[in-house]
């Protein structure tokens, strides 16, 4: 995706997420301070950094689950400081969210878990079936649609979660350590799936503290440390077939900057 378009700044009409001098405090403790960046439509971004650095906080600010104590977050034209609470559901419909622990409804089938997101939004039945079929096929689980989550492997459960996040065709997919509970092979599958979703035009932003993933990731990498954005680099967009694999442990990537 048009990698050279990124640094054009907040006035770029293709900007989909922007943070302006964001500070976030939990009571007395600052989780983020003076964080500024913007993300363009269709970008694929990895946020990394040590535990407690503030990665999850960044993602939760984007869904407006949290609000900055200073500064401003703008997502698809919706401004955090002017956001009405009643508008939040509408913002959420444009954002898919995936977690490390999947957060599926254990007592419902794969199909129902995905259809749930459509029901909540009120999509008519015919369209619902079509959409659920589309995303479950995309993640390769249409044939396991009648299973319960606990009858699936971790990777499969995460794919169900991704299907649920994608079924409402969001413009943005956020994933908070989506591979945190998965082995390297499965993790690579999930990253591959995220690439495919990104190829479809969805802006994808995921967090991880897995060094292997970060090393092999050939797109934009933001590093957060102690609540601050310490590095934000655009790597060369590799041809996917040549891209290093997580499973290829011998590979030592050279990080390239723009």
């Amino acid at each position: 995706m048009a990698a050279e378009a990124i640094q054009k700044g907040p006035l770029d009409p293709r900007t989909i997420i922007s943070f302006y001098h964001v500070e976030l405090r939990y009571r007395d403790q600052a989780a983020l301070s003076d964080v500024t960046f913007s993300i363009t439509n269709g970008e694929f971004v990895c946020i990394t950094g040590p535990s407690g650095a503030g990665k999850s906080s960044v993602l939760r600010l984007i869904t407006m689950d949290l609000f900055p104590t200073k500064g401003q977050v703008v997502v698809r034209g919706m401004v955090s400081t002017k956001m009405k609470r009643s508008r939040i559901p509408h913002l959420r419909r444009e954002i898919g969210f995936v977690f490390q622990d999947f957060r599926l409804l254990e007592d419902r089938s794969v199909y129902d878990n995905v259809a749930f997101a459509q029901l909540v939004v009120g999509v008519p039945k015919a369209a619902r079936i079509k959409n659920v079929m589309r995303v479950l096929t995309q993640v390769g689980l249409w044939n396991k649609r009648d299973r319960l989550p606990q009858q699936l492997s971790g990777g499969e459960q995460q794919r169900v979660a991704i299907a649920r996040a994608m079924v409402n065709s969001p413009k943005i997919l956020l994933a908070d350590e989506p591979t945190g509970n998965l082995d390297p092979v499965t993790a690579q599958e999930i990253i591959d799936l995220l690439f495919r979703i990104n190829d479809g035009g969805t802006c994808v932003l995921f967090s991880t503290h897995d060094h292997e993933i970060v090393k092999t990731f050939g797109r934009r990498v933001m590093v957060v440390k102690d609540g601050g954005l310490v590095s934000d680099e655009q790597r060369r967009v590799l041809d996917r077939d040549q891209a290093p694999r997580l499973t290829d442990r011998m590979y030592q990537p050279e990080v390239q900057r723009d």
Binding site: T63, S86, P89, H90, L91, R92, R93, F97, R103, L105, E106, F116, A117, V120, V121, R164, N168
Partner: peptide, 13 residues
């Protein structure tokens, strides 16, 4: 969990 997911996927109050 249901309420959490509802909020996540944009259910209105």
């Amino acid at each position: 969990r249901v309420i959490e997911v509802q909020m996540l996927v944009g259910a209105t109050d």
